[in-house]
Design a binder for these strands. Sequence first.
DNA 1: CCCATAAGTTACTTTTTGGTTACCACTTTT
DNA 2: AAAAGTGGTAACCAAAAAGTAACTTATGGG
Lengths: 119, 119
Amino acid sequence: MGRKVIDNPNMCSLVHAMNIIGGKWKPIIIYLLANGSMRFGKLLMFTPTISKKVLTDQLKELEADGLIIRKKYAEIPPRVEYSLSDKGIALLPVLKALSEWTFESFEEVKFEKCRIITL
Amino acid sequence: MGRKVIDNPNMCSLVHAMNIIGGKWKPIIIYLLANGSMRFGKLLMFTPTISKKVLTDQLKELEADGLIIRKKYAEIPPRVEYSLSDKGIALLPVLKALSEWTFESFEEVKFEKCRIITL
DNA sequence: CCCATAAGTTACTTTTTGGTTACCACTTTT
DNA sequence: AAAAGTGGTAACCAAAAAGTAACTTATGGG
């Protein structure tokens, strides 16, 4: 039921990082939120191969770990806005560096610099 | 048989990065190799909760993606040394930044700065 | 002749993750 | 009166990842 994490008896910060953002989708979700808040439906549109349930699950874990903030408006139909917390914002430079590493290390492949939008 | 990856029609470099190092163990393996080459058995010892098969699989994928180099010596019993390639070395600063992000963003928890050794 | 060794491989099982479909709650629009 | 729009949840299944245990290979040592 709970999520599986790497045992971390020595409190290694890299192990913890992998436990938090190791999920395949999480860095991508965080990057999608880099330019401001987004609603559930829009996040779903921008990550076409993810299912509703998986997106829900990932968002819940990200919220539980304090990387994103979920703001629910008491409207009908419901509106829920997701945005980055301070922790999430602090992660952006790391993700940018990761994206640039790919760009530079795999020059033989023509990558776009972190355009995640796939529609 | 093959590994599952995120569809990446727009060649987003972050998506590619996740496809390459998204595995739970991969960044940790790369970090273990930061200080020089290591033999299979030693890698296994330093990652206590990973199984032999999974370590083998991860190493194979890392090698296939060009992040590590596998050098096999024609000895009996066999000796195999794993080390970082240029791509792998170029990834180290990113992993270091990731480790530091954890350290600083979760101050309430007392993390060790990237001591991965868990024995 | 038998054992140990290093680095796996193979076959098998279990756990985890991801996907599908249906359904809900409320209101506004048709 | 019925449908559409939103952000979900629940039940159920399929697929993938991971774990376990036994086996392999070739040689030197006892």
